[in-house]
Amino acid sequence: MALLEVRDLHVRVEDREILHGLDLTVNAGEVHAIMGPNGSGKSTLSHVIAGKPGYEVTDGQILFKGEDLLAMEPDERAAKGVFLAFQYPVEIPGVATMNFLRTALNAQRKARGEDEYSTPDFLKKVREVAKSLNIPQDMLKRGVNVGFSGGEKKRNEVLQMALFEPSLCILDEMDSGLDIDALRIAADGVNALRSPDRAMVVITHYQRLLNYIVPDFVHVMSRGRVVKSGDKQLALELEASGYAQFEDAA
């Protein structure tokens, strides 16, 4: 059984159809890159998988581990192992990062019928992960993402990914707003999480990110559909020839 199976997905936002019958199959252990021009529906796909309000699925289905993902609340999806790393992680003043991490982790564990983490175990785990991502301790005491730089926000997303141990990670434009050093740290963090039980969907505009997170499969999206799939060579070809050919094809 595939980990994620998107079948003939049609999605509307207000009166406009954004996805027009999208198919995507992702198996455990695989890394998929989704590339495409602005407005091709990449972010819409990631939002619909995570359960963001405001999108209407008019046809098709999404199965996650064989279950109907679209029937679940966003928090149920998280507890089942879906993780969306946000393109623009929000700032939440007044909610300390540590408190947020513990509340979220324990909410997921509780939903799965697992024991909540004890405080010492939790702290140990957070400190280990934070250290590997070069996240200073005082950042964890601040409000969630408040006053964080772009790079720090993305590292905070990777920190959560490491902490929550999801089986499907969707990275939405993780490279946007990052310089090369920040990108390398974040990508190293993501690569450390690659495992046979876990799949990743890397949404990106540019081939650059894929030098750091090397995909098994590359899909090109245009006008709400996957128009071409291939291996990492496809990303290099796109870098050379651009998206225009697919715009015409679609």
């Binding site: 995570a50 928090d75 509340t103």
Partner: peptide, 10 residues
């Protein structure tokens, strides 16, 4: 939505 995507119920 950010909090719910991290596992918190509404």
């Amino acid at each position: 939505f950010y909090l719910r995507a991290r596992g918190l119920c509404e």
